[in-house]
């Protein structure tokens, strides 16, 4: 069994492998929350939805950035820690960072807009997380299957445009959130699974 200190040391290493993007995300969350709370309330409701999905998109792009920074996969394949586990650890770091970003945004909203903001913030954090799960799933799955961070961000932005312009605008949140969460979990699972295929991982290395 790995010791606690080793686990902490490893997580610290992995969070550094994720790069600056992970640290920028909470800042972006707070900034978005602050900006939206400063709006007149007519504009706020219009922009709130947009900023939720923007934040989710940012989180998923963060996933792409983290995946794009993965290196020396051939060496990782030869190490005792399987590549899917390695990638999952880094994604967990992004997930934590996203949660912090959501919380920071909500806090900023509560401070800026009072109780009315508080209700919106709670609902908003859920929306952000579910949407981020879906978009991250798209990014991870594309990256794992098609060997490229560029492809992952292209697919991600296409899906995000479709989501923001059609899906979120027409589907009630009660349906939207669970569907996104389930789809996201499924895509992440499929993506991680396809990383168990060494041929595919090596192809990524040689690209």
């Amino acid at each position: 069994m790995t010791s606690l200190s080793a686990t902490i040391a490893l997580l610290w290493h992995e969070s550094r492998r994720c790069g600056l993007a992970v640290w920028a995300l909470p800042v972006a969350g707070a900034a978005v929350g602050g900006a939206v709370s400063g709006l007149p309330s007519v504009a706020r409701s219009a922009l709130l939805l947009a900023s939720y999905s923007a934040l989710a998109c940012l989180a998923a792009l963060c996933v792409v950035a983290v995946l794009g920074r993965a290196r020396m996969l051939e060496l990782h394949l030869s190490l005792p820690v399987p590549v899917p586990v390695l990638v999952a650890r880094r994604l967990a770091v992004v997930a934590v960072s996203t949660a912090v970003a959501g919380a920071a945004g909500s806090l900023a909203l509560v401070f800026g807009a009072g109780t009315e903001g508080a209700l919106g913030a709670a609902a908003g954090a859920g929306t952000v997380l579910c949407t981020a799960a879906l978009l991250s799933g798209v990014a991870l799955w594309t990256w794992a299957r098609w060997h490229s961070a560029a492809a992952a961000s292209g697919a991600l932005i296409a899906v995000w445009l479709g989501y923001a312009l059609f899906w979120a605008a027409n589907i009630p949140p009660g349906v939207n959130r669970p569907v996104c969460a389930v789809m996201g979990a499924l895509l992440i699972w499929r993506g991680l699974r396809s990383l168990t295929d060494p041929d595919r991982v090596l192809a990524k290395e040689e690209r």
């Binding site: 790995t2 200190s5 080793a6 040391a9 490893l10 990782h76 005792p80 820690v81």
Partner: peptide, 9 residues
Amino acid sequence: GLLKGVDDK
């Protein structure tokens, strides 16, 4: 070293 399971610092 950590990935190879050398746990002792």
